[in-house]
Simulated assay, not measured.
Amino acid sequence: MTGRSTDANKAFTLDTDRVAVFDLDGTLVDSVDGIAVAINRLLRAKKALPLQREEASALLGHGLDAFAKAACESRGVTLTDDELWRFHHDYLSNPLIGTKLYPRVPATLSLLAQKGWRLAVCTNKSEAPAIAILNGLAIFDYFDVICCGDTVEQQKPHPGHLSETLQRGGFRHLPAVMIGDHAVDVAAASASGMASVFAGWGYGHTEPAFRPSAVASSFEDLPGILESLIPARSRSLA
């Protein structure tokens, strides 16, 4: 899905030559509380103990299906197809509940766009909740393309997910950086020959086999880090 509207472009440089690709959960937004509410309703119905926030956070990164299955496995209960559907329906009914932007996200996205970065989202989350969150938190228009887990054949860590994101945005010819909080983001970037920035404020952790190009401790650190990875070429303002 494409994002940025004409109005959102007015103050931005137009001769852009580099791309910043963002993960969603744990990178742009803190959504674990809302996801945990939905899975804990399911677990209580199965007479199982609910997940604590830290437990739920550790299971994120591979999409909602994988999260629900891992949550049930952690409590020693079996997840049926019908229960998985009900979990999805419960969460999708209002994915904005328990979801908030990390500090300085809009201001930093605006700064990156003004500095000539094209912005994209590559997430294993399904499209319906991803779009609802981006719209509901008023950052949808910053992004040229949003490529979600249920619109591609292979999700991160497969490099095909990143390639498809760049293809849909018309960015295959531009240098790009992947920003994410999970090993799947770093692995996808590595397999694509792309630089990566690990989002240290998120849920995940790095793995020895996949080293990020850089680590950021806060969202507002990104402009300087990204500039060091792909320096700007001279450009004129429209």
Rank of each mutant, 00 (worst) to 15 (best):
L134W: 08
A132K: 09
V152Y: 05
E55S: 07
S5E: 11
P159R: 12
P95F: 06
N9A: 13
A214P: 04
H182R: 14
P103H: 15
L96G: 10
S218C: 15
A70F: 05
A232N: 05
T6G: 08
L49S: 14
L59W: 05
I179Q: 00
V29L: 14
T80I: 08
H161F: 07
G204P: 02
H62C: 03
S218L: 09
F171H: 10
P103N: 13
A176W: 04
A187M: 09
V29H: 03
A187T: 06
K69Y: 12
G136L: 07
Q167T: 13
H205M: 11
T6E: 12
F171Y: 13
Q167H: 11
Q114M: 09
R233M: 09
Y102M: 15
H182E: 14
A214L: 07
A45T: 09
S236F: 15
E54I: 11
F171T: 06
L51K: 01
V29K: 00
C148P: 02
L59P: 00
N124G: 07
R211F: 05
P175E: 11
H173A: 12
M1R: 11
P103A: 15
A130G: 07
A191S: 09
I225S: 05
L109K: 02
I146V: 13
L43S: 04
D17Q: 15
I179A: 03
A71L: 04
V32P: 01
A8Q: 12
